[in-house]
Amino acid sequence: MPYNRYYVEIGRVVYLTRGKDQGKLGVIVDVVDQNRALVTGPGLKRKPQLFKHIRLTPQVLGGFCSGTKDIIVKKRFEENDVEKKFKESLFYKKLTARQTRENLNDFQRHKVLYLKKKMNTLINCRYGKLRKPVRKAYFKKLAEKKAKIDAAKGL
């Protein structure tokens, strides 16, 4: 699968990873310098954010130029179902998975380990059962082949 590179561009939807608005979505409206971009969005204060504190998502909103007003950004945001699309993305799934992992207590962590182990034994047992006749047939074939060669040598 080709790797899709996401670029910093006007209209790029970003996920904020730090600060007060951590965990919210915003849109890049302007690029301030090589460290910061002006980010705004519904429920966000319009302000420059460090690139270190944002993550680019695959979504790009079209139809507005640099420095677009908040009202228009909000409108585009809702028109494109950005929030919904984000929640369906792989990134969001990984994020929530990580968060739930972090919030597990000691017993729950053990439970995951325990159930994983159980699942793996079940899978391995089933796999072994399926593998057994195949292997048996293969070794039988090998033995026959060898016997044939030996017989030929003996002649």
Binding site: E102, N103, L104, D106, F107, H110, K111, Y114, L115
Partner: peptide, 27 residues
């Protein structure tokens, strides 16, 4: 609830793996 797993839990000692930071863990 989860009596069987709880039993197994008590049997096993606690330990840290790599990428497990005790200050960030929840107990």
């Amino acid at each position: 609830a989860d009596g069987e797993i709880l039993k197994n839990y008590l049997k096993k000692p606690f330990g840290l793996n790599s990428r497990m930071f005790p200050h960030a863990l929840k107990f």
